[in-house]
Amino acid sequence: MTYSSLAIATAPLWRTIEQPPALKLLVAALGLALIVGELWWFLGPHGPGVAARQGAEGRQQVTIQVDGGYDPARIRVVAGQPLRLTFHRIDPSSCVAQVIFPDFQRSLDLPLEASTSIDLLPAKPGLYPFHCGMNMVRGMLEVVAA
């Protein structure tokens, strides 16, 4: 290996190779397309969230699978109606062992291979994020007017 293993190294690796202009153009175009594609995939609009189903006593219900992320991660619910979110955790990482709803000041511990529920009352329309204890795995409650 010609590349020095030091943290910051001068550049024995530095070796210029003459590439055909068409290849350079192709790499630049592919790179740009990749950037646009990934930004759209991660940050772009992907339609409304999964709608909660109506359960008994007018309670909205959603079951979320916790496996690396939240599935579904974006949930659409109606304002003013009680909501029960059931988390089923199959991911063994303790990073996702807790889910936090900061706007509701609520948190829930999620035992592995089990379903755990939390009841919330989303009073006002708006976007209410929820996330794991590490703030890395994230989901969104989309509360819409009735």
């Binding site: 991660f42 690396g68 992320g69 599935d71 890395m136 795995v137 994230r138």
Partner: peptide
Amino acid sequence: ADFFKGAISAFRQHSADMN
């Protein structure tokens, strides 16, 4: 394996993290 599993799962949910 956990990094890859987490990354794939996050990708499917249109999200990206440390994994």
